[in-house]
Write a protein that binds this DNA or RNA. Sequence first.
DNA 1: GTGCCTATTTATAAGTC
DNA 2: TGACTTATAAATAGGCA
Lengths: 84, 84
Amino acid sequence: MGRKIEMKKIEEMTKRQVIFSKRRSSLLKKAAEIAICCDVDMLFVAFSPAARLGKFCSKKRIEDILQRYVKFPIERRLTSINFS
Amino acid sequence: MGRKIEMKKIEEMTKRQVIFSKRRSSLLKKAAEIAICCDVDMLFVAFSPAARLGKFCSKKRIEDILQRYVKFPIERRLTSINFS
DNA sequence: GTGCCTATTTATAAGTC
DNA sequence: TGACTTATAAATAGGCA
């Protein structure tokens, strides 16, 4: 899509962030479509090098599983993220 | 992409499974590209209605986090999945 | 950092075998 | 079930405002 790019880390930070932002939203959109059309629950997380989280695409079952089984350190981080 | 479809659950099971299989692999491919080009770790999980897991797109940090913080019931399920 | 534009590249629904 | 093919629709890299 668009002009082709190499499959390697984009070294220019600004460019890398712009590309990430754009592609992440497309990926989430796709994940949401698949979740609905194919009747599956989808979980998606992106960790930046600074260890911050990206976003979720999720539904009920995954929220339940996370609340039930995931210990506090990761749970605390996960709950700061928007579900969509 | 392709002929347009409605944003709702595909009722025909066979068709739904075929579509899911195709779109899941595309989504994983995209996630892998983003992970490399944008230097992020990506985690992706799909739960079917039968509660079986789909697949992962993951890297080192996420594997570490899962091993360190996720309790056994979910961990046991996660470890049966391929990382790619 | 945001938000559109668009030429180009990908994804993919349907179909066939 | 999978592996192709193809017409169509979506994603997107690079620009530009």
